[in-house]
Amino acid sequence: MAEPPVPHGLDAQGCIAREGSLALVPHAFRPVVVAARDRLLDTLGARLHSAYLYGSVPRGTARVGRSDLDLLVALREEPADADREAVRALGEALDKEFAQIDGVGTLLYGRTRLLSEPETYDLGWFLACLCTPLLGDDLAEYLPRYRPDSLLARETNGDLARLLPRWRERIDAAGDSEEALRPLVRFMSRHLVRTGFTLVMPRWSGWTSDLREMAEVFGAYYPQRAAQLLRAAEYGHEPAGDADVLRSYTDDLGPWLAGEYARVHGVKAPRPD
């Protein structure tokens, strides 16, 4: 078995260090971040509790014209349809105005949901470890420290078996349209790579958000599937509008990964949605 990369991404106590910083935002993306911050305030007003960046922009690895802007928004109450529509429209406006980004993705939740017990090792961990504060009081102060253990693995990505039927429906709906298939390839590729990585994360005892490194870590423990996950990592960055790629995920890699995940870590506790 090939040796995995040296574990990293933890603090001195062995907990996952929070990644990302406003100081790391590349210069080209700073006007986008400022606009997103100001418009969230204008759009949501007093309903807004806090907002966060995540993904390549606050990690400093975003590529001009290729990377999207990822936001997590926490409201003081649970979001209503009007809030979702307002945030969607805000994202569309930012995407049209700024050529630096290729789309805007916004996660919208109520403060209570983010701090709830069922979400402690899922959305709570995501906010505390992978999100960079942009606006408001940081909810991470109310959350625990996290270690790369089996509990975290199960509660973050232990639901792949439940997702696969939905993925097949989305592929069927996309038909032969490359324009519709390409974002599905990017999304599903990234999801599978992250699932493969968290499958072995407790054995590796480290953290990374780099897709290629995730695939390399996984491949050291499952060499028979290494090439598939490395290819998925490539599609996560450079997606192809190819339905055959997606079918290979839902018919082969995905079912195998879901079964192995359940065997090793168990199945994620169901959520309301």
Rank of each mutant, 00 (worst) to 15 (best):
G105I: 08
L72T: 00
V32P: 10
L41V: 06
A86N: 08
L127T: 03
L134S: 04
P144H: 03
A51I: 11
Y142D: 13
Y121Q: 04
D81R: 13
H27K: 13
G124V: 03
L108P: 07
G158S: 13
R59V: 01
A80D: 10
R47Y: 01
G110Y: 08
D138G: 08
R147K: 14
D81P: 09
P79T: 02
G158P: 13
V34H: 02
L94F: 06
S56P: 11
L135E: 10
D149F: 05
D81F: 05
D83I: 03
R37E: 01
P118G: 11
T156Y: 11
D137L: 08
L115N: 07
D38Y: 02
A35I: 05
H49T: 01
D122K: 07
L160R: 02
Y54S: 07
T112C: 08
R37A: 03
A99Q: 09
L40Y: 00
S150D: 15
I101S: 04
N157G: 01
A35F: 01
V87M: 12
G45A: 08
V73M: 00
G158I: 09
L143K: 05
T43I: 12
V87P: 11
D38G: 08
R76G: 08
R88M: 12
V64Y: 11
L127Y: 01
L115M: 06
P133R: 08
E77F: 12
S67H: 03
L69I: 02
F126I: 06
L123Y: 06
R47T: 03
G110V: 07
F126W: 09
R47A: 14
G60I: 05
